[in-house]
């Protein structure tokens, strides 16, 4: 962990002003500190944004839900409105990490968490995401857990979040404020970027731009399912996860985790629901480029969808 200075922001304005002169926000810290210890992240200044009163959950005038950026994963999963109206989000959050981590991890931080690719984590190894131009260690190496779709020759890292997959299926928007005070709302579909030739650039945020909240549209109703498949029963990243909402009028939507550099959603997959799990999987993975080690994820996506369809049918 390289030396840094630390300051505690008292307001959003304070925070973005501090960031404009080059600083990183720290919220829960569960991913940033992990990476700082390994010098994968080396901020010279940390701006603590835990005290900005961004920890509220409130209904929007339109009937949606605005989730403060600093709302902890536990609090979000347990919130009565989320449990009732956005159960897929509760389920996704509860499928992630551990109780201890969920007590610290924040809504904004979860969106920004970085890949679990082991070559990204070992600083002696080539990794274009960590060190642009150094090559991808994973492409011809240990890639079992990595992405199969949305990848590039430069990077096959997967996005590790569960929460973001549910946010994606719910069409959340990421609300931000920039250093100059400009506020914008970024649809989650656009928020995360595919690696292309620049895998080190992972999202739309500009330097110093702060996430203030995530807004969910009006409740979709219907049946919400989050299905996560992993190598052990708990406290592990997804091999494959699927967030699904079946709205009750024949409409369905699916987002996928564990298989792509960002929460993965394909319109054609939503449209294929009537044709069954296999068709949804095929649409979702139309451009898949797996390695020999992670090709099984293609089948696992289909199997997980089959399981999820069964789960849905088992419920009223």
């Amino acid at each position: 962990m390289k030396p840094f200075t630390y300051s505690r922001a008292a307001s959003v304005e304070d925070a973005v002003a501090a960031a404009s002169s080059g600083g990183r926000f720290i919220a829960g810290g569960t991913n940033l500190l992990d990476l700082m210890k390994l010098q994968i992240e080396t901020p010279s200044h940390l701006i603590d944004v835990n005290h900005l009163e961004l920890d509220r959950i409130e209904r929007t005038p339109e009937g949606g839900l605005r989730i403060g950026a600093m709302v902890r994963n536990t609090a979000l999963a347990a919130h009565p409105d989320v449990r009732r109206d956005y159960a897929v989000l509760s389920r996704a959050l509860l499928a992630g990490a551990s109780g201890q981590l969920r007590n610290k991890a924040t809504t904004a931080g979860n969106l920004l968490q970085r890949t679990r690719c082991p070559y990204f984590y070992d600083t002696r190894m080539p990794c274009n995401k960590r060190k642009p131009g150094s090559g991808c260690g994973a492409l011809k190496g240990g890639s079992r857990s990595l992405a199969i779709v949305g990848t590039s020759d430069a990077c096959i890292a997967q996005h590790p979040s569960d929460m973001a997959v549910a946010m994606r299926v719910l069409d959340a928007a990421v609300d931000t404020v920039a250093a100059d005070g400009t506020r914008r709302s970024i649809p989650i579909a656009d928020f995360h970027l595919l690696p292309g030739d620049t895998p080190h650039i992972e999202n739309q945020l500009k330097p110093g731009e702060l996430i203030t909240s995530v807004t969910l549209p009006n409740p979709l109703g219907g049946t919400h399912v989050y299905r996560k498949v992993r190598d052990r029963s708990s406290y592990a990243f997804a091999l494959v996860s699927v967030a699904a909402v079946f709205d009750g009028q024949g409409g369905s939507r699916f987002a996928f985790g564990g298989i792509a550099p960002k929460p993965w959603r394909v319109a054609a997959a939503d449209a294929a629901a009537a044709a069954g799990a296999g068709a949804v999987a095929q649409a979702a993975l139309a451009d898949a480029r797996p390695t020999a080690q992670n090709a099984f994820k293609q089948q696992l996506v289909a199997s997980t969808l089959t399981s999820l369809f069964r789960q849905k049918e088992a419920r009223p």
């Binding site: 679990r116 070992d122 260690g137 240990g142 052990r232």
Partner: peptide
């Protein structure tokens, strides 16, 4: 679940922490 994955090019165990080398947890 337990397996140290060998990178046969660089000659090391790739999954060298407890997030990647999985051992059973309570729920297992």
């Amino acid at each position: 679940m337990e397996e140290l994955h060998v990178d046969k090019r660089f000659g090391f165990f790739v999954n060298h922490d407890m997030a990647e080398y999985l051992v059973p947890v309570h729920a297992d």
